[in-house]
Design a protein around this nucleic acid. Structure first.
Length: 269
DNA sequence: CTAAAATCCTGGTGGC
DNA sequence: TGCCACCAGGATTTTA
């Protein structure tokens, strides 16, 4: 379930091997993944070079030399990486891009939820996304003001990509814990102080996760264990809250599990 | 208009 | 040990 920090880490990892590379050929073995279609991608992608590797929300965005943009969404289980010519193929490789230097860009995705888009109008894909939480332009005042106009549960608002981009189930739960806000509270009913606090911890938790991902980039051996230490509530239902010791609760909100501490995050509605 | 539910998928897990 | 039901959730689509 890659969210903003994980996608940003993958983007940074791809940038050096991909920048300036030209696509030679594509093989898409799971056609429903391709938008608008396998045929369009096969026809238009070869010959175009990668002019940038960027991120918008959870989308990986690659503008190309021929005027198209290649976008990739990893959804739940996708992974995108550049491998050398000799690398054995993997079981869930869904798209393999041959590059002009002999390397390959591979999109591996067991669950087949991921998507690749080739378009001349990237705004048609990412244009409706909300602000980037780590950008300078993301400001506290308009965040608070927009929260005031949302009647839904705060957890659902945080995972709404048109409200704010890049936050998924994990970091929504984590941010709400750090802000001491119950996930079922109505967004518009938060106090001004709670809205300010939420703005602050969203940036805090995403930055910390990004820093952690960055360090795991340099030291892959650290991966699994450190994530568990970082997490306060996600996936910890029944375990003791790290602050007050109460058992972490899990409820369903929509189709998603939501984890919180019933003591540190009060005022259910 | 909003909100909730169904949908797509397969690997991993827990129960028996 | 094998089998099976069920769970994980991002975003879109459908339904109320």
């Amino acid at each position: 379930m890659p969210e903003l920090p994980e996608v940003e880490t993958i983007v940074r990892r791809l940038r050096v091997p991909l920048l300036g590379r030209r696509f030679v050929q594509v093989r898409i073995t799971w056609p429903p993944m391709a938008r608008p279609s396998v045929d369009v991608i096969n026809l238009r992608l070869p010959g175009q070079a990668v002019t940038a590797v960027a991120r918008r929300g959870k989308y990986i965005v690659m503008p190309l030399s021929g005027g198209d943009t290649l976008l990739v969404h990893l959804k739940m289980t996708g992974d995108l990486r550049v491998v050398g010519p000799g690398e054995a193929s993997h079981r869930h490789d869904r798209v393999v891009f041959d590059l002009d230097d002999g390397q390959q860009l591979r999109f591996n995705d067991p669950r087949k939820f991921g998507r690749i888009y080739l378009t001349q109008d990237p705004a048609s894909i990412v244009g409706q996304l909300g602000p980037e939480p780590l950008d300078e332009a993301f400001d506290e005042t308009s965040f608070a003001e927009r929260l005031g106009r949302r009647s839904g549960r705060i957890k659902a608002v945080l995972t709404d990509q048109t409200f704010i981009a890049g936050i998924g189930n994990i970091y929504a739960d984590e941010a709400l814990f750090l802000a001491g806000i119950h996930p079922l509270r109505r967004a518009a009913e938060l106090t001004e102080q709670e809205k300010r606090q939420l703005y602050r911890v969203i940036r805090q938790v995403l930055s910390a996760a990004l820093a952690h991902e960055g360090s795991s980039l340099r030291d892959e051996a650290y991966r699994g264990g450190r994530f568990q230490e970082l997490v306060q509530v996600y996936g910890r239902s029944g375990q003791a809250c790290r602050v007050c010791g109460s058992p972490i609760q899990r409820v369903r909100l929509g189709q998603r599990s939501t984890h919180f501490c019933p003591v540190c995050q009060r005022d259910a509605r």
